[in-house]
Design a protein around this nucleic acid. Sequence first.
DNA 1: GCCGTTTTCGGCCCGACTGTTTTCAGTCG
Length: 590
Amino acid sequence: MIKKVKDDGKSSFSKIIYNSEIVEIFTKVADLLDIKGDNEFRIRAYREAVRTIERLPWQIQNLIEEGRDLTKLPGIGKDLEIKIKEIVKTGGLKQLQRLKKQVPEGLTSLLELPALGPKRVHDLYLQLKIKNKQDLRNKLMQNEVSQLKGFGRKITAQLKKALEQDATKKERIKFKTIEQYLKPLTSWISQDKLVKKVFVAGSYRRKKETIGDIDILAISSDPNQVSRRFTRFPEIKDILSQGETKASVITNPSLQVDLRVVVPKSEGAALFYFTGSKAHNIKIRNIALDKGLKVNEYGVFKGGKRIAGQTEKEIYKLLGLDYIPPELREDKGEVEAALNNNLPHLVKLKDLKGDLQMHTKSSDGTSSFEQMAGRAKKLGREYIAITDHSSFIGITQGLDEKKIIKQVAKIKRFNEKISELHVFAGIEVDIKEDGSLDLPNKILKQLDLVVCAIHSKFNLSLEKQTQRLIKAMENPYCNIIAHPTGRIIQKREPYKLNLEKIFKMAVKNQVLLEINSQPSRLDLNDENIMQAKQVGVKFSLSSDAHSPEELFYLKYGVYQARRGWLEAKDVLNTYSLAAFTQFLKQKKKR
DNA sequence: GCCGTTTTCGGCCCGACTGTTTTCAGTCG
């Protein structure tokens, strides 16, 4: 039943259903069908739909309300559209209820355990009536599991160990943290005289904001030896598998590392395969199949004959595609774009001429603005904006009106003396709950650049939070919205916002949306960036440095921007000083 | 269950490693 909410007319549904709830239900359906032994392609269809919904930046409920055709989304057909609508309207799915009657729900938790896939879970249920982890624990103790066909000593031992540790949760790790772990690993592998080259592939090479495990590719004429020696890396806790061409280990700190070793002539094919993403690989392999070719990690094959594989470039070329940079390999349209010579020319770190958010010891930074400017100059920047906090949030010791005027004067004097780098006098001003800014316009007017941000009241309703941000953007002095969604990776969810509206209003008011480069923010994220760009949003890419050392964080923002398909022209701080100054002036005239 | 400049039916990526197998199924990435 759909209930109209009468008072504001904004929502036609009685209850908000988030995308995550649809994802949860479809995942459960897929898992249960899997255990039941249903058609594997039907199961795959549910998982594909989950993938689509997970990365959708819009709330599906809103799309339905606006009458959008969900079957336009990849992997969503007529059937799944009907099911999504059922979930959004009723909060549940009848099909799932039926399935739960056939297969106990607790069985899906068993899939988290090592060596347990749908087939073995099904056997455990059928033969021993095991319905959940507790049942499994009991039957293992009573030595009943080892009686089953297919459950030998090793598997039962593995299961006991896993249940003891309940080591089922594997948290992803932030990109910057992974960088530190890589050095000892790659240098251990490189030390091997048999190793010619080492690549870090996987999601690390695609520059994802978090990394699940480390995938390393080594090139050697003797893969077997290299794989063996790898498992003697001193910081190894556990060896998961070790064969002639690959090995998987758990290191200290707990991190899964997969090594793959191929001979030199397969370098390109293996790098392609091991970089992923899985969805991208499948798409490419399908294109190959259409052409009567086969792609695997050893090369491209026609009949039994190997016709490419030395480099990634030759593989893409052979398939009629432009070279696709790793950051784009997510099956988000990059393959189609590569077919039509339509790939973006992705922004590069060296394109960035300025850095538009940073802090000094006038608020919560560690250094003077002169020190920040000095380091920025060394990094090749031509201009920076000093954007200390306004005084609204007490903890950061923000600037009040008097201090701001003083700092502006100081920066002006600096610019008169120093010509190699221009400093814009800016502020990171707080957006208050009602959307007004923490400083009066007569003060903001005197600044070169105004960055607005939310630092409080994160839990407002979707309507209120959206309105708050829009009101801030409508202030004629607002140039940039900093970390627009407020998420902190693995710590804080984004605020509830109607991003589509925010993007449109940003365009209308000539407000830049920030890509904040702090490794735990990276806000906007890649999906948001992609969608915002389609609406016509322009961006600022900022380090948000609180010390000179953090100025290099800009590279993380660049990775995120590239994953969001941005070109230099989309990012305003790739503009020359003159052009960027012109942009600011134009806004002030409004 | 999705999808389609060959198809509205008949496809749906590909291979390595493990354990328990007497030749391969299941799991994993």
